[in-house]
Amino acid sequence: MQLRRQPLSAPRPGDTRPAAQRLAVPLLLLLALQGAAASGEPEDSGWLQDAEPSSRLLSQAARAALHFFNFRAASPSALQVLASVLDGRAWVNQKKEYKFDLVFTTEFYRAEEGEKRLGTCSAQVFFRNDKPRPAVNVTCTQLIKKERRQEEDYQLYKLMKQLKSPLNAVRIPDSHGYIAPSLRPIWNLAFLGSSYVMWQKTTPFLHYFMSQISSVKQWKTNDDAIDFDYTVLLHEFSTQEIIPCRIHLVWYPGKPLKVKYHCQERQTPEEGSGTEEGSAVALTELSNF
């Protein structure tokens, strides 16, 4: 848009301000408009808002945000799953990149405790060129109390450290879908590590859920951390494929989770530890935990 040059108006009677000061406000307004155009807001950079985004697409983005939230929270005692999307907006551009603004509710992952609605989350999710590993900024409220979470994480940690021999188990749950109470903490730790993998692999059209632990082995360490090797089966929705993934997990209560993984792809095997190109080109954010 071209700006037409306007003649300078003569100062009004009684206006003794210098000409430079009289020009300051229009110049500041022009700079503000230029800054808004460069800010990358959806309406300024070729983004078109989807008037009626599908519930599947909004749920896809919400699940990706929760996978990231679970991984960064690094607490097997406070895992969350999606309950419902309360509100969501979506934008898409010519490159088939997607942006989402979401508000959704969550449920406590351990359904056997009878806890249903756990909290409410708001998130911004960005998928770049249909690639995995979306960029996420997520905030959640009304979570499990911090003191309770820390106590339960510590009790799990102490239990693992007191084992007389390193844990070595297979097929959790069993063929009947049963998880023994003694193995539930192991399942939660595996789900925690898998949250990282599922966030890394989620695209606008593919999402994942952990269906089984094929094997788990605990390693003795000289430091304070818990060190596990898992093989998990991830259910890839849309394609209905079952994908085996080897996950190496190092965990200590209150510390960032360390995860490395390798999944057996349908075509070309790729090493996956967050190094492949994805949507998240910068450190994504987590807050209110």
Rank of each mutant, 00 (worst) to 15 (best):
M1P: 09
P7R: 03
A10C: 07
A20Q: 09
A24W: 06
V25P: 00
P26Y: 02
L30S: 13
L31W: 04
L31T: 09
L31F: 10
A32W: 01
A36S: 10
A36Q: 13
A37N: 09
G40V: 05
E43W: 14
D44Q: 14
D44I: 01
S45L: 09
W47E: 05
L48A: 12
E52Q: 14
E52A: 15
R56K: 13
Q60W: 01
A62E: 01
L66T: 08
F69E: 04
N70A: 06
R72M: 12
A73Q: 10
A73Y: 03
S75D: 03
S75W: 01
P76F: 06
P76E: 03
S77W: 02
L79G: 11
Q80A: 13
Q80K: 11
V81L: 06
L82F: 02
S84Q: 14
L86R: 14
R89M: 10
R89L: 13
Q94V: 11
E97K: 00
Y98C: 00
F104M: 06
F104L: 08
T105M: 11
T105S: 15
E107S: 11
F108R: 04
E113N: 07
G114E: 02
E115C: 06
R117L: 15
R117F: 09
C121T: 08
Q124K: 15
F126P: 04
R128D: 13
P132W: 01
P134D: 00
P134M: 03
A135N: 07
V136S: 03
N137L: 10
N137P: 00
V138L: 05
T139L: 11
Q142V: 04
Q142P: 00
L143D: 08
K146D: 12
R148W: 04
E152N: 10
Y157G: 04
K158T: 13
M160L: 15
M160C: 13
K161T: 08
P166D: 06
P166C: 09
P166R: 02
L167R: 03
N168Q: 15
N168G: 09
A169C: 10
R171V: 10
I172Y: 01
I172F: 01
P173A: 07
D174W: 02
S182C: 07
R184S: 11
P185R: 00
W187Y: 10
W187N: 03
L189T: 07
F191T: 13
L192M: 12
G193E: 03
S195K: 00
S195C: 06
V197C: 09
P204T: 06
F209G: 10
M210K: 02
Q212I: 02
I213E: 01
S214T: 11
S214F: 05
Q218L: 08
D223W: 05
D223T: 14
D223L: 07
A225K: 07
I226C: 12
I226V: 15
D227S: 13
F228T: 07
L233N: 05
L234H: 01
L234C: 08
H235W: 04
F237K: 05
S238T: 15
T239A: 11
T239I: 05
I243N: 02
I243R: 04
C245V: 11
V250S: 08
W251M: 07
W251R: 02
Y252M: 14
P256A: 09
L257E: 00
C263A: 07
C263H: 02
E270A: 11
G278Q: 00
A280I: 04
V281G: 09
A282K: 12
S287W: 03
S287H: 11
